[in-house]
Amino acid sequence: MTEYKLVVVGAGGVGKSALTIQLIQNHFVDEYDPTIEDSYRKQVVIDGETCLLDILDTAGQEEYSAMRDQYMRTGEGFLCVFAINNTKSFEDIHHYREQIKRVKDSEDVPMVLVGNKCDLPSRTVDTKQAQDLARSYGIPFIETSAKTRQGVDDAFYTLVREIRKHKEKMSKDGKKKKKKSKTKCVIM
């Protein structure tokens, strides 16, 4: 069974824990209790493949930012979460993405942009803004509501699919490099 290491990042209060708990335990946590770091595991079937999701729910508070490099190193894919009623959390996505790329030393890291709290009427981040940002990053965008469960499975499952595509691409690139290195030079 394939294991996928997913990391949920975003500013404090955007609903990272609520999304994760909704996926794992099928219930909505409405009281806000700032996370330092929590880890969850769940076995699911995605596109006919049974897999184990190892999900790291991270601290959004700035005082825990020193811990970010460590979990970013171990993560295979990242859910970059903002709240649709919090423009600052949307603007912060850029910083999370840049930090992930720096730590992973790669421009090509599996990510999904997630606009959470889409059940709320007080939207300050337009869907088109988020779609445009995701398009500019070359990553999928999904709106979710941890409260109603809308888009929750889709967000995590899409990230797994992005990781699969990335692994497939990397193995193809690896095979191309191996083929090239088999060419021999004969000096007579």
Rank of each mutant, 00 (worst) to 15 (best):
Y64R: 01
I36Y: 04
Q25R: 07
L6Q: 02
Y4Q: 14
E3A: 13
T50A: 11
Q61Y: 05
G48N: 10
D54P: 06
I55K: 01
D47R: 07
L53G: 10
P34F: 10
G12C: 08
E63Y: 06
V44N: 10
Q61G: 11
V44H: 11
K42S: 12
D33T: 02
Y4W: 09
L6D: 00
T2Q: 15
K5V: 03
Q61S: 14
Q22D: 15
T35W: 03
G10E: 01
G10Q: 01
I24E: 14
K42F: 09
L56Y: 03
D30K: 13
Y4M: 15
I55R: 00
D38P: 02
T35G: 02
G13C: 13
V29N: 12
Q22I: 03
A11W: 07
D33Y: 04
V9L: 10
Q43G: 12
I55V: 12
E49G: 08
S17K: 02
E49L: 04
Y4I: 14
S17F: 00
T35N: 01
K42T: 10
V14C: 10
I21V: 14
I55G: 04
I36M: 07
D33P: 00
K5P: 10
V9R: 01
E49P: 08
T2C: 13
L23W: 12
D38Q: 03
A11E: 09
Y64Q: 02
L53V: 13
G60W: 00
T2W: 07
T58D: 01
Y64V: 03
F28G: 04
T20P: 03
Y64G: 02
S17L: 00
E37L: 01
A18P: 03
Q22V: 04
K5M: 04
G60C: 03
V29I: 14
E3S: 10
D57P: 01
Q22T: 07
L19P: 01
Y4P: 12
C51L: 10
T35L: 00
V45G: 13
D54Q: 07
E37Q: 04
L56F: 02
I55D: 00
T50S: 10
S39K: 05
I36H: 00
R41E: 11
L19Y: 07
V44Y: 08
E63H: 07
L53D: 04
G15M: 00
I24C: 07
L23P: 03
Q22A: 07
K16C: 08
E37V: 04
H27V: 10
Q61K: 10
T58W: 00
D57I: 02
A18K: 08
V14Y: 06
A59P: 02
L19H: 13
D47V: 05
Q22Y: 05
Y32E: 06
Y64F: 12
